[in-house]
Each structure stands twice: as C-alpha cells, then as structure tokens.
C-alpha cells in the first residue's frame, strides 16, 4: 500500500469520526428542536421508559450489525453506512455486489474505494428518490398506494435476496447448504424466531464461515 493511500485512510478516519459525531448531534438534537417548534419538548421520564421497553433489542442489534458489517464495508464504507442506514436491505448487498462486479479483494485498497463509492452512491440515490417522492407525494400517492401494486412493494426484500441467493449460492453450494438447511429447520420448528431474523444472521454466518474455513484449509493442504 503506498503512502498516498495510507494518508487517505488516516484522513478517512478523521473525517468519518467527525461526520459521525456531527450526525449524532444532529439526529439527537433534532427532536428537541422539533419539540421547541411544536411547543412540546420531549418528556424525559417517558423517554426513559420507552428506551427501557424498546431500546435493548435495537441497541444490541445495532452493535451486532457494527461488528458484522464493518469488516465487509471497510472504513469509509462503514462510517457512511452507519450514518445513512438501511444496511441489510440495501447498503450491504449493494457494496458486496459492487465489490464482486469489479473483483476487488477484501482488505485491499481497491475494496476500500469500491465500497465507499458504492455506499455513497446508494445513499445519494436514496436521498434523491425520497426527496423527489416527498415533493411528488400527492400526485404519486394514488399510484404507489394502488392495492394492485402493494404486493410488489411488500416483497422488495425477498426479491433482493432471491437474486443475491442465486448469485452467491451457485458457486458456493458446499458453504451454503448447511446454514440454509439449518435456518429452514430452525424457523420451521420455532416460527416465532421470525421477529429475530437479524439476530439469526450471526449463527448462520458463523456456520458458513466455519465450513468455508474447513474447505479453505482442505484446499491449501491439497496444493
């Protein structure tokens, strides 16, 4: 890795941390500003109760997401992804798709650049589509809320994962078979786990990584 890229990386961390800190202040400050405008500041006692009631699962989930996705996204990509959200249903598949399209290897300078470009583009397109959508909300509403089209938008995630499943399973059947069967059986016998699908990524990923490691080891020994 050359010096200019090391300098780029060091600056990425500095800018990323500053951007995250700025966004944390904005995201947490906005409710107070809105409260002042509306004439009703947040009730901190009710906030504490709500945080205890709904917070733990999401706080743990966001920490788990951080640990899982940062290695996939690299530094620049992860700073941006955690600011802009929609990780599982958009940013992660988008970055992985971009990485594979150009054949970038993880941990390389190229992967860092591709991941950042991909997530920045995806975030800007989302912001643009939503801004246009909000401007056109009234004329678009009848079309988008047409009952005939609802199944299409209710199934965006299955459509995304169907496409991605083919792409990744076809070349990695040995890695995919066991976690796929295990997850199908688990969700069949314990259907209530449906609400905790994002947590089940951890054991499924763990099984897949263990198998991939065994195959990798076997391949290395054979050479």
């Amino acid at each position: 890795m050359n010096n200019s890229f090391e300098l780029y990386n060091a600056r990425t961390h500095r800018i990323g941390r500053l951007a995250c800190a700025l966004c944390a202040v904005l995201f947490l400050g906005a409710p107070f500003l809105m409260g002042a405008v509306l004439g009703g500041k947040p009730d901190m006692a009710a906030f504490g109760r709500a945080l205890l009631a709904v917070g733990p699962v999401w706080i743990i989930s966001s920490v788990a997401e951080y640990l899982i996705y940062t290695p996939m996204l690299g530094a620049g990509g992860s700073y941006l992804a955690f600011i802009t959200g929609n990780l599982i249903n958009m940013k992660i598949p988008c970055a992985i798709n971009a990485r594979d399209m150009v054949g970038a290897k993880s941990g390389t300078a190229e992967n860092e650049i591709i991941s950042t470009l991909s997530i920045a583009t995806s975030s800007l397109v989302t912001i643009l589509v939503l801004a246009l959508g909000v401007v056109l909300l009234l004329p678009l509403q009848p079309l988008l809320q047409n009952p005939a089209l609802q199944p299409a938008f209710d199934n965006v995630v299955p459509a995304l994962f169907g496409a991605m499943a083919y792409k990744y399973f076809r070349g990695n059947l040995k890695v995919a078979a066991l976690p796929l069967v295990a997850m199908c059986l688990l969700f069949t016998f314990v259907p209530s786990l449906s609400s905790a699908t994002s947590f089940m990524i951890l054991p499924a990923g763990g099984i897949a990584i263990a198998i991939a490691y065994m195959l990798h080891k076997k391949g290395a020994k054979a050479q």
Binding site: I68, I92, F161, M164, N172, M183, I201, A204
Partner: peptide, 20 residues
C-alpha cells in the same frame, strides 16, 4: 471467503425465515 460466507449466512437466515 469469510466475507462471502457471512453474506451467505445473511441470505440463509432470510430464506429460512420465509420457509418457516
């Protein structure tokens, strides 16, 4: 390979959920 495997795990969890 680890990154690809993790992504396979992610997709497997969602497919399993739909089957379940």
């Amino acid at each position: 390979k680890a990154m690809t495997a993790m992504f396979i795990g992610l997709v497997s969890a969602y497919v399993g959920n739909y089957v379940g």
